[in-house]
Design a protein around this nucleic acid. Sequence first.
DNA 1: GGCTTTCAGATGACGTTGTCACCTGAACGA
DNA 2: TCGTTCAGGTGACAACGTCATCTGAAAGCC
Lengths: 211, 211
Amino acid sequence: MTSRAESAAATRRALLDAAAELLDLGGPEAVTLREVGARAGVTRGAPYRHFPDKESLLIAIGSQAWEALGRQMQELRADPHMSPAGKLRAGLIAMIEIGRSRPHLYKLMFSNPPGDPAALARAAQHSQTEFLAVVADLVGEGEARRYGALLVASANGIAGLEASGQLADPKWGTTAEDLAATLVDLVARPGGRVPDPASGPGHGSRPAPRP
Amino acid sequence: MTSRAESAAATRRALLDAAAELLDLGGPEAVTLREVGARAGVTRGAPYRHFPDKESLLIAIGSQAWEALGRQMQELRADPHMSPAGKLRAGLIAMIEIGRSRPHLYKLMFSNPPGDPAALARAAQHSQTEFLAVVADLVGEGEARRYGALLVASANGIAGLEASGQLADPKWGTTAEDLAATLVDLVARPGGRVPDPASGPGHGSRPAPRP
DNA sequence: GGCTTTCAGATGACGTTGTCACCTGAACGA
DNA sequence: TCGTTCAGGTGACAACGTCATCTGAAAGCC
């Protein structure tokens, strides 16, 4: 019934689930391989049969999260019942929601582990490409190149402030959802074109020219 | 010559310096109280005479950084030779620069330690108030309430992407400085207020089209 | 002066952690 | 059937945070 490979895959998944749970509970420090093993029903040494070290286990969790977000963005983009602006708002809020509900996971997604600093950036590729496409559907290909990074960065920043609890400060007098909506309005503002050097009244700022 | 209090204060500073250095080198994991003590010329138990635990030491480092940024923002705001938009750009870039040059410190500044989750948010108060004032000088008091949080969040996001090395991905085709400039343009765009013709220092990487 | 108090620092010890070397036994291919 | 593979168990080690305890010199007081 349960082949060796199946049982090993089940253990691997149990390890990932247990580790993710511990991460949500108390951050990376709370993820001890002993406790992960215990929760997965194995002993402390067993995780080393599936992950070379603790860092790799955490990377795997972060990568999973990026992939899930990528699928979410993909489905969002394909939704025929939503306006482009609504999709962008929803995309921003999808990121913000992770920061709100799973702050430790969120920070993990934007960390760069010493062993393989680019691992999570690689895992983020699909999600960010989909997001960029959502932006392009709203503001066009050219503008998307200009605003894509800014929107990702801003969503990251809003979610980060949310994750660190700072947005709750009444000094700001706003919510993450408001910020996302304001951001979308700014980018998609009617007639909203960043002042061109030729047409604008002031100094235009252009993104670095692509090589 | 050196009283007891003076020597204790010197040790405390040496501990903070050593810890900050280790933080920059390898993140919070690399900050071991033993190594901190060794670099400060004392033994492993000595740090406990100045900080109740490791977490408090890290909080102290983060708070220091926030206070330094606060002073920087204050001086910036008082600078008579810079335009409001230039000041805002410079303020954004000041945050971004921390994320670029000291990524581990930057992440620490936006963390919320389990023991005292609001400690760093408190330390950030002055800096963020000054930043908000810079925003208000540019877009007015009413708009500042609307855009202040968004700007802080976006700066945080840009710096965070920079700190995690993701902005280096050629997919974005932009730089942190460009994003900051685009952001200022968006907020100060006609409809809000007209961006100033004089560009302040701090964004030399832009193509800078000038009529 | 002499005495007591205070406190930065040193030291030994303990439990926990990540990690390794080694062992065990069952599923697998031949 | 037999040897191989490999998930998992076990013992051990160094490093870590932290505490209890000790020491010695500066500081305060008479």
